[in-house]
């Protein structure tokens, strides 16, 4: 690996200045530098390197705006993903100053003036900052059978839906907010060491169906899916997943919940 630019240590708290204090970080109009990891695995001879782009901080600039400006005005070859630019589709996750987060929801003034960008690890690298999280997520959903396993009667659309406590509905909605961005997986030391590890997103999905009374699966069924050292027992409780999840899912609580339920099957 080569590094063409010296990358400064990530600084989330840049030197304060009068205007910066008002806008909450880097002042509008100052220069910011985006240090992006460039590498194209499809191209023979491509070697991972860092490339620096300089641009001007504008009012309310997000990384989505900054990267598009770079692509339009400086370098059309830079690869990255965006769809919704509103934190809904989950496709723009990348490593910003060493931690995974959604680029569209990150204000450059909060993370600049030197911003280091890299693709999420663990997932298949498409090129530069673009990774194939979709493929991984699909594989995980299939492996964990992460869909509602209801009874046949429930499929009768003329039947009234069973009632549910509002608190429970609220809990399920919380977990359904996951956008499958992959930040939790990229932040997880366990997932980095062990490629077969289910990851927090997988455990949160199982916990979600475990909570849902409409899912008729039992703990024995869930144990078949996550009762291994690649499943919930592999989690080392580093909680980076919980700390980085851009949708603030209660991952710590849900993983502990699932662990208690699955450990309870140890002698049962």
């Amino acid at each position: 690996m080569t590094t063409t630019t010296i990358v400064k240590a990530p600084s989330t708290t840049p030197a304060p200045s009068a205007t910066a204090a008002r806008s909450g970080g880097v002042a509008t109009g100052t220069k910011i530098r985006v240090h992006a990891l460039r590498y194209n695995p499809q191209e023979p001879g491509s070697v991972p390197r860092m490339q620096t782009y300089e641009l001007e901080q504008s009012e309310g600039m997000t990384l989505f705006i900054a990267l598009n400006e770079i692509r339009e005005t400086q370098d059309p070859t830079l690869q990255f993903d965006f769809v919704c630019r509103a934190g809904i589709c989950g496709s723009c996750a990348m490593m910003v100053n060493g931690r995974p987060t959604l680029a569209c929801r990150t204000l450059t003034r909060d993370v600049g003036p030197d911003i280091t960008l890299a693709p999420l690890p663990v997932f298949e690298l498409i090129g530069d900052l673009s990774v194939n999280t979709g493929k991984w997520m699909r594989g995980t959903s299939e492996r964990l059978q992460a869909w509602l396993h209801g009874d046949a009667k429930a499929r009768d659309i003329n039947r009234l839906e069973e009632r549910m406590e509002p608190e429970l509905a609220e809990q399920l909605n919380e977990l359904d907010r996951c956008v499958e961005c992959g930040c939790c997986v990229a932040s997880c030391g366990t997932a980095r060491m062990r490629p077969d590890f289910v990851g927090a997103v997988g455990m949160a999905k199982i916990a979600r169906f475990r909570l849902d009374p409409r899912d008729k699966r039992t703990d024995d069924d869930y144990y078949e899916l996550v009762g291994t050292d690649d499943g919930v027992f592999g989690c080392m409780s580093l909680l980076a997943c919980h700390d980085v999840c851009p949708k603030d899912l209660p991952l710590q609580t849900q993983i502990a919940f699932l662990r208690r339920k699955m450990a309870g099957k140890g002698w049962a």
Binding site: M95, G98, R99, G189, M193, M236, S237
Partner: peptide
């Protein structure tokens, strides 16, 4: 595995990851 964890820990600068 050693290399993965070390590299990860250094860029993440996340307390619980380092504590592990």
């Amino acid at each position: 595995q050693w290399q993965m964890y070390r590299g990860h820990m250094k860029v993440m600068k996340h307390e619980d990851t380092t504590l592990w």
